[in-house]
Amino acid sequence: MLKLYYSPGACSLSPHIALHEAGLAFEAIPAPTSTHRLPDGSDYYKVNPLGYVPYLVLDSGEALREGPAIVQYIADQVPEKNLAPANGSMARYQLQSWLNFIGTELHKGFSPLFNPAVPADAKQVFKDRLISRLTWLDGELAGQQYLMGDTFTVADGYLFTVTNWPAKVGLDISGLANLAAFRARVAARPAVQAAMKAEGLM
């Protein structure tokens, strides 16, 4: 069975959502980034030397790290669910473009805001950049249900996960109506609710 190591509310919520959407059998193992202690008391660094989540261990014993790679692996196990377009198609490259944008322009942009050592004036620079990126994204969502059109993909789960964070860091995104509508649509999905309940977020 697949094993997903996660920390509640962290970026690992994205593959957690993908696993529920895919309907795959898996075990979710809490690996809180605050303690790096697993439920049995052992050291998570012995599982993943980098110490961060998500981390997916396959039945074969092979493992994958990095959320954008993990969610594509999950999607490719159940092609009939259309969680990612077919490999080699232009649409697949568009999906990868979205996953990279979310990972590098949004996800990594939030990291300094969670770091108490970063000075307030520096944090404001990161906040301003995030708002500019999110405002552009809000425009891209105009007139569509999801990032890729009318079909939910693993990129939507990742975007939903990352846009859960603004309230935690004092970033006001209330003016972004298309993003708000997108977030409400994704939040209503049963797989998203199942993942959030499992992580104690609901």
Rank of each mutant, 00 (worst) to 15 (best):
A117M: 05
K127D: 10
F110A: 01
V125R: 15
N115A: 11
V78P: 03
Q96I: 01
T104P: 03
A117E: 10
P116H: 09
K81F: 05
N115W: 11
V118L: 04
F101M: 08
A117C: 01
D76G: 03
P85Y: 06
F126V: 08
S97H: 10
D121K: 11
K108T: 01
A75K: 01
A122M: 08
I131Q: 09
F110Q: 04
V118I: 11
L95E: 00
S132C: 11
K108A: 01
L83N: 06
V78M: 08
L134R: 10
H107Y: 04
K81T: 06
G103H: 13
P112D: 14
Q94W: 00
P85K: 07
V125A: 14
W98Y: 12
L106M: 01
D121T: 12
N87L: 09
F126K: 13
V78D: 07
K81E: 05
F114P: 06
L106A: 00
D128M: 14
A86H: 04
T104V: 11
T104Q: 11
K81P: 03
I102T: 09
K123D: 00
N82G: 10
P119C: 11
P79Q: 07
S89W: 14
D128F: 11
F110G: 01
L99S: 04
I102C: 07
R129L: 06
F101A: 03
F101N: 03
S97Y: 07
E105L: 10
F126R: 14
S132T: 15
D76K: 02
S132Y: 11
A117V: 05
N100P: 01
G109Q: 03
T135E: 15
L113Y: 12
V118Y: 05
E105R: 12
K127F: 08
K108N: 01
F110K: 03
E80N: 07
K127W: 12
A122E: 13
S111W: 11
K123H: 01
A122L: 06
N82C: 12
I74K: 00
R129A: 09
F114G: 05
D76R: 03
P119F: 12
M90E: 09
A120D: 15
I102A: 10
L134Y: 07
R133L: 03
Q77W: 02
M90L: 11
E105C: 08
N82Q: 15
A91H: 00
T104Y: 08
A122Q: 12
V118T: 10
P119H: 12
T104N: 09
V118A: 04
W136A: 12
L113P: 08
L130G: 06
S89Y: 14
P116V: 06
L130T: 13
T135A: 15
S111E: 12
S97V: 02
R133T: 02
R133F: 02
D128N: 15
G103N: 15
K108I: 01
K81M: 03
E80Q: 12
L83C: 07
T135N: 14
R129F: 05
P119K: 14
R92K: 01
L134T: 09
N100T: 06
S111Q: 13
R129S: 07
N82I: 07
S89K: 13
I74C: 00
V78T: 10
L134M: 14
A91S: 02
K127H: 12
P119E: 14
S132L: 13
